[in-house]
């Protein structure tokens, strides 16, 4: 009894700790500008306002950033997951020459800090006309997320007994049909987890977005946020309001897939 209470309290403390920055984001976003500095540090302002939100939505370029981000992150998530599912399946099921090398190479790509790669990537994309374009960002994000996502998917597929697709093949399916009709439906939790992971990674990516995109037209939302910082001041209220709005798709997405996510993580972890 005492143990469960202690357990609950510990979890509550942890949740409070990790959610506090989000709470602060929300608090600042509804604090009127004139109270921001005058009221000092308090948990909730004496007066709240939605002015920042309406300004951000109506008068700033934020909706465009938001849309760009949605396009980039959504497309990246879908492309990456499709590629990773195929790759993960091959890693999980097939024995082929150089498999160990391939897996090693995939791991190596994960070892470099992204900053190191910005310049060469820019050099590669520029002649292809892929700088300052959303497509370029999608290509880069997909390339960077595929290795890890493949390992993630491999873990999920490893948890599905190969007997199942063998049974399907004996029932009259070819390997791809068995993959599509038997393995993919069973791998949905893993696919959802991968989608979620890649979506959030792309949604919050900043370095490439900053380097490959110039001008507000193609900017994604993390870059757009910087436009609230001017030379002389930072418009905290508007910036936070934009931040709150940017959280919405990620939250919605996770709400949608959280059932699969928990299932997927435990399946991958336990069965492995």
């Amino acid at each position: 009894m005492l143990k469960t209470i202690a357990h609950r309290v510990a979890i509550l403390c942890f949740i409070a700790f990790s959610l506090f920055p989000l709470f602060w984001l929300l608090k600042v976003s509804v604090t009127p500008n004139d109270l921001l500095y005058s009221e000092g540090v308090r948990l909730w302002p004496s007066r709240v306002t939605l002015d920042h939100f309406s300004f951000v939505l109506a008068n700033s370029e934020f909706p465009r950033f938001f849309g760009n981000s949605l396009i980039v992150s959504g497309t990246t998530a879908v492309c990456t997951t499709i590629l990773a599912a195929l790759m993960g399946y091959a890693l999980s099921r097939f024995r082929f020459r150089g498999k160990l090398w391939l897996a090693g190479l995939l791991l190596v790509t994960q070892m470099f800090p992204l900053v190191m790669l910005v310049a060469p990537i820019f050099k590669i994309l520029a002649p292809l006309g892929l700088t300052n374009s959303l497509a370029g960002l999608i290509v880069v994000y997909t390339a960077f997320n595929v290795p890890f996502a493949s390992f993630l998917m491999q873990g999920f597929f490893d948890g599905i007994p190969p007997d199942l697709e063998e049974a399907a093949m004996i029932d009259g399916a070819d390997r791809f049909t068995a993959f599509r009709q038997i393995i993919l439906p069973l791998g949905l939790p893993g696919i959802a987890a991968t989608l979620g992971f890649v979506f959030t990674a792309a949604w919050s990516e900043m370095i490439f977005a900053l380097m490959l995109i110039s001008g507000n037209d193609k900017a994604t939302f993390p870059v757009g946020l910087l436009s609230f910082v001017s030379k002389f001041s930072v418009d905290y209220g508007q910036m936070m309001a934009a931040g709150v709005l940017a959280l919405i798709p990620a939250c919605l997405f996770f709400l949608m897939i959280q059932r699969y996510l928990v299932q997927g993580m435990t399946a991958g972890a336990v069965k492995g």
């Binding site: 063998e166 049974a167 038997i182 069973l186």
Partner: peptide, 12 residues
């Protein structure tokens, strides 16, 4: 046709 030790029934 084949019957597997694990039965290999499609869970879904």
């Amino acid at each position: 046709a084949m019957v597997f030790q694990s039965y290999a029934l499609y869970p879904h």
